[in-house]
Design a protein around this nucleic acid. Structure first.
Ligand SMILES: [Zn+2]
Ligand SMILES: [Zn+2]
Length: 289
DNA sequence: CGGAACGTGTGA
DNA sequence: TCACACGTTCCG
């Protein structure tokens, strides 16, 4: 299985990561400032603080080693749920950037090739990996995802299914230096990369989110005909970087829409108020036909 | 009906 | 005043 190869790389990369860890601790002096608005919702996409929006693909283009690390991380995710990545591995980063030289061109080629690849198999791969990850938790029966539409656990497969315009981050099918995962599956924060699943409880502090929720409720109460605000709870809301690849990201200038992967699950729902019956399929029930 | 473009509320 | 992003309209 190709996964074994990835694992081996993972071990190696892990040492790397450890080494860098100490380095990170150095600049860890500033305790990860998270930008939240008053409602406690994380407002600023991480890409902002990273100078310019850096697409996931760019990370890869920048240093394939990072991909390996991420890969290892993904595996370790299954055990620890929290990982630190080498996102700010400036030294390595600079090194690679200098040595590559054609990072821009590379990126373009990469992306285009990504768009090309059929990618079905990789989905399966990623899915399997994710399944492994969730094996540790009481896998909320994703099968019984029925009337309980309230359920926050948007399964990875869900994301996979809903996303259509996203180029898979993998080429031809080799394991060598590619990143066979769907960027939509990850939540990248300055503290690390998480599975988007949400099943893996990770992020720090659910209290703030609760606060956000109450705030939102208050706002809604004040005026029903106001712009709704993101819930701040759902996985998309917790995501903090724009993918820079979805349609919303690509034409942000004219689209004025948030990244598709960051679009709040609540806001996706129809704004309609209470009296709405939803079929288990998610389609709105019509009283008349 | 889905997506792109646009208007504009909202918070910084 | 600006950037962000929700809601609406337009368009295929
Ligand atoms: Zn995006
Ligand atoms: Zn949300």
């Amino acid at each position: 299985m190709s996964a074994s190869g990835g694992l081996m790389e993972g071990n190696q990369a892990r040492e790397d990561e450890d080494a860098r860890d100490s380095c990170c601790a150095d600049e860890e002096s500033s305790p990860v400032v998270e930008r939240r608005n008053r409602s406690g919702i994380i407002s600023t996409p991480l890409s902002k603080s990273l100078k310019h929006s850096r697409a996931l693909s760019q990370y890869i283009a920048t240093c394939s080693a990072a991909a390996a690390v991420a890969n290892a991380n993904a595996n370790r995710l299954a055990q620890s749920s929290l990982v630190t990545t080498g996102i700010k591995s400036h030294s390595v980063d600079a090194q690679h950037r200098g040595q590559v030289g054609l990072s821009k061109l590379d990126r373009g080629a990469l992306v285009s090739s990504l768009l090309d690849s059929p990618s079905g198999l990789h989905l399966a791969q990623a899915a399997e990996l994710l399944r492994r990850a969730s094996m540790l938790l009481p896998v909320s029966d994703s099968s019984s995802l029925g009337v309980g539409g309230d359920m926050e656990a948007v399964s990875a497969s869900d994301s996979l299914g809903s996303v259509t315009d996203f180029p898979l981050l993998s080429n031809g099918g080799g394991v060598g230096g590619t990143f066979p995962f769907h960027p939509g599956l990850f939540i990248m924060t300055p503290a690390g990369v998480f599975l988007a699943d949400g099943a893996l409880s990770q992020v720090t502090g659910a209290s703030e989110q609760q606060q956000a929720h109450s705030e939102m409720a208050a706002a809604a109460n004040a005026n029903a005909k106001k712009k709704r605000k993101r819930c701040g709870l759902c996985p998309p809301c917790r995501r903090r970087i724009n993918c820079e690849q979805c349609s919303s990201c690509r034409n942000r200038k004219t689209g004025h829409q948030i990244c598709k992967f960051r679009k709040c699950e609540e806001l996706k729902k129809k704004p309609a108020g209470g009296l709405e019956v939803m079929l288990p399929t998610g389609a709105p029930f019509r009283w008349f036909q």
